[in-house]
Amino acid sequence: MNDIADHGVRFGRIAATLPVRNMGRAHDFYTRVLGFEKIFENGHPVGFMILKRGGAELHLTLQPGHKAAAFNVAHLMVDDVDALHTVCKRSGSRIIKSLQDKDYGLRAFVFEDPDGNRIDVGQAM
């Protein structure tokens, strides 16, 4: 028995929120390098921002004392993982796990954004 399912609650989108030490630098990376578009910002100075590209939505929150976790904080599915891997390498992003075919059916890699947030990127094979 599942209380939520039994009450007919349907879930909509869920978006990852990434802590960043410098909102301007994070905005530049996600918009200029990865092609996201800013659709919302709040605060003076900006302390929260929503970025969107296709079906992907990302929330950035200003956390000046942020220390990055040593694990993946988000997973992104794309339709051309090789192209995104090339973009990340060209931008100077640190590649944590190299591009490879996984036995669970994904071609994948992991990179760090400028604040050290690790993002696992995959494409179905």
Results as ranks from 00 to 15, higher is better:
Asp79Glu: 13
Pro19Gln: 06
Ile4Tyr: 10
Lys38Asp: 07
Val73Ala: 04
Asp3Lys: 12
Ile96Val: 15
Leu99Glu: 02
Gly65Val: 02
Gln123Ala: 08
Ala56His: 10
Val46Lys: 10
Gly12Leu: 09
Lys67Ile: 15
Phe111Gly: 06
Asn22His: 11
Ile96Phe: 04
Gly12Ala: 09
Gly43Thr: 03
Gln63Asn: 12
Arg94Thr: 11
Val46Met: 08
Glu57Pro: 00
Asp79Gly: 04
Val81Asp: 06
Asp3Tyr: 11
Thr86Ala: 14
Cys88Ser: 12
Asp82Tyr: 00
Ala68Trp: 11
Arg32Val: 04
Ile50His: 06
Asp28Gln: 10
Asp6Arg: 13
Asp103Val: 06
Asp82Ala: 06
Tyr104Ile: 01
Leu60Phe: 13
Met23Glu: 01
Gly105Phe: 05
His7Phe: 14
Gly116Cys: 08
Phe40Glu: 04
Leu51Pro: 02
Val46Asn: 02
Arg25Leu: 15
Asp103Asn: 10
Arg118Leu: 07
Arg13Pro: 09
Thr61Cys: 05
Arg107His: 07
Ile95Ala: 05
Asn2Thr: 12
Ala70Ser: 14
Val73His: 00
Asn72Ser: 15
Leu84Arg: 07
Tyr30Thr: 01
Lys52Val: 13
Met77His: 11
Ala15Arg: 13
Ser91Asn: 05
Ile50Lys: 10
Phe29Cys: 00
Ala68Asn: 05
Arg53His: 11
His44Val: 13
Ala15Ser: 15
Ile39His: 02
Ala26Leu: 03
His66Phe: 15
Ala70Gly: 13
Lys97Asp: 11
Met125Ala: 12
Val20His: 03
Leu62Ser: 14
Thr17Ala: 13
Ser98Lys: 11
Ala26Met: 04
Ala15Cys: 10
Ile95Cys: 07
Met1Asn: 08
Pro45Cys: 11
Ala26Asn: 03
Arg53Ser: 13
Asn117Gly: 07
Gly92Lys: 00
His85Arg: 08
Leu106Trp: 05
Val20Gln: 01
Gln123Leu: 03
Phe36Tyr: 13
Pro114Cys: 03
Glu41Asp: 15
Arg94Ser: 07
Phe40Lys: 01
Ala68Ser: 14
His27Ser: 05
Val81Ser: 07
Met49Phe: 08
Gly8Leu: 10
Val9Ser: 12
Ile14Arg: 09
Asp120Phe: 11
Leu106Ala: 09
Asn2Tyr: 08
Phe71Asn: 09
Gly65Pro: 00
Gln63Phe: 07
Gln63Tyr: 08
Asp80Asn: 14
